[in-house]
Amino acid sequence: MDQDSQPRAPSETGANLPPRPVAEDDLVLAALRAGSEEAFAAFVRRHHASLRRIVFGYVRDSATAEEVVQEAWLGFLKSLASFEGRCALRTWLYQIALNKARTRFQRDLKVLPFSKVVSSEVEAQEVAVDPGRFQGPDGPYPRHWAAGPAPWVKDPVVMAEERETVNLVREAIGTLPPAQGTVMRLRDVDGLNSEDVCNVLGISETNQRVLLHRARCKVRKALADRFKHAARES
């Protein structure tokens, strides 16, 4: 497995925050300024599809999204000399792309603004786990598990090495509602931290957390449906 592009693995212990991609991006920045085509190609490969997906959330048309992302890369190159490193390089890139998408959006008002998508997903009444899985008011321990979640048949470390499992996660992220999918992709796949995501998407910390929570719980559920011990229910 390619270990060069690594700091995408999220943190595993309790309450610490995921790593900032800054250190990795500093190396990229130095290489770009030194004119390395390899570094630029790698950076494009790493972020192009995510940018396109995020921009698609605004413009709702794949050809337009591709066009906007191409423009964003050109804008990114143009502004590289003046980049001061106040945020991670990738955050800078995403901000440029989002600004271009918003401009495009204002030109074409048929599409629903992202803020509306965010608020409709956040305001929807939704719980991570079916309430039927918990004891009712008459049970011995109301609101505690009636039957807890089934353990998975495989060790997660082994699962992470299997293409099939990773593909399942990618597909599950792909079927999330748009704002949830965008937040989870930026945070857990692309490795932006919460502050960056709030800045890039122009959403509050609280909304970001609600969207991320719903997204992660849905993806967990997709994995649980596939990997739960057959002996017990999910």
């Binding site: 693995a9 999220p10 192009h48 997660p156 470390v157 996660v169 990618r170 857990d188 967990r220 994995l223």
Partner: peptide
């Protein structure tokens, strides 16, 4: 399982 989900998400490769 949530932690495992995060670990797996970190393995998702960017698309071509």
């Amino acid at each position: 399982q949530i932690r495992a989900t995060l670990r797996l998400s970190g393995q998702v490769e960017p698309e071509d």
